[in-house]
Nucleic acid binder design. Structure first.
Lengths: 213, 213
DNA sequence: ATTTTGGTTGCGGTCTTCCACAATTGCGGG
DNA sequence: CCCGCAATTGTGGAAGACCGCAACCAAAAT
């Protein structure tokens, strides 16, 4: 794993004292971290493949932490975000958490508690990343299917016989067999059951085989 | 749907003025509700089949709202819980939400906002209830499988041929076929693909067919 | 002692799947 | 105009899935 994708706790705070304190804290606890002095700076450098988590002040000069989180989500990031704040109120915390923040911690915070939270955020990201990897592989395979193959696949997943599929698509059974074989080949499976299984673990089942009956 | 299972907004608050205000508010907005003057009273009456949501004060004489929520969860309830509080602090809100509370609202609250939250909580519960129904049906079917049938089912879901399954279990192919047919019959499906599909929508796939390969 | 239930097996046969070999049509790009 | 690709179809055969019928054994229940 190269430096760009190694998991990091990204500290985003416009207060240098806090950055230094957190940086020191994480270093002494063996948690890799990086610091950014503003949301703008962080967002300018951010890349989708970054792993780890974000530890961010809510109130900063320029872009707020909440807005930054929103922007991250919009850009497709799923990095767990831990907000820290000196003057947070309940509605703010509620909003942040309901929008998916990993945690919301008030200053002054307990060093051990914060390290624990960051650790679990890193674990969470590792878990999500792993899950996403198989999902992306499956998506890539799905993308190389031709339109007809996709149609056939849906019917296969509906548990229909080749004969029935042929009938519904007004093509010969033989053609269905060819498509079926190609689908299995491209999806890297050897049976309809394996196909269903793969789509299930990738969490893509419902997106290709809409519920019916 | 009888009176006991009709969706209700259960108001739990030891302040009669609040109970009356909420009761009136919900009544005028056509949201069915019931009131309870303490967590103990509510828990004593509570039944697992209750539908709707809970609107509860955090700070009450006797059992606190947080403890009551914990108790509810322990007893298997998945009712969405909306906390209201006059003197909440950030850590309390964070704790409540991270433990699964639906929302956390400070007094004085905006009537319209509260009604919106309760409405979405009711919708959420309806959604969960529906989902749980299919899940329970599937669980019931799963429960009537014999041990051997379950073993065979797992291997079927692993995409293995009857021949291979017979080999792994040291039984004849014919026996596998019999078990296979019974599994399909008891599960109410007609193919392995449908079986995988059913377990998927019921969210039980991973509990019966642990990831491997 | 008898019945029920779960697990087991064989036979024979039909239906489906899967595959190699062989070909045709239509479309877009070089 | 030729090439590559997607979609299409056919033939024939091997392999697997599925089914009804018939049966045996052991343990548990009645």
């Amino acid at each position: 794993m190269n430096a760009d994708t190694a998991p990091l706790a990204h500290v985003v705070d416009d207060d240098e004292a806090i950055r230094d304190a957190l940086s020191w804290l994480f270093r002494t606890r063996k948690l890799p971290s990086a610091t950014w002095s503003s949301a703008e700076e962080f967002m300018a450098a951010w890349k989708p493949e970054w792993r780890g988590c974000v530890v961010m002040d809510i109130r900063m000069r320029g872009m707020s932490g909440l807005d930054c989180a929103e922007l991250l989500r919009r850009n497709g990031s799923r990095l767990p975000i831990i907000f820290i704040t000196g003057h947070g109120d309940v509605p703010m915390a509620v909003t942040a958490l309901k929008r998916g923040a990993f945690d919301f911690i008030e200053k002054p915070f307990d060093d051990n508690a914060l390290v624990d939270v960051v650790s679990s955020a890193l674990e969470e990201d590792a878990r999500l990343t792993l899950q996403r990897a198989t999902r992306e592989d499956t998506t890539a395979r799905l993308d190389q299917l031709t339109g007809r193959e996709r149609e056939v696949m849906v019917l296969i997943l509906a548990g229909k016989f080749n004969k029935v599929i042929a009938d519904e698509l007004n093509i010969s059974m033989r053609t269905v067999e060819v498509h079926r074989a190609r689908v299995f080949e491209k999806m890297g499976v050897r049976s309809a059951v394996e196909l269903a299984q793969q789509l299930t673990v990738a969490g893509l089942y419902n997106s290709v085989a809409p519920a019916e009956e």
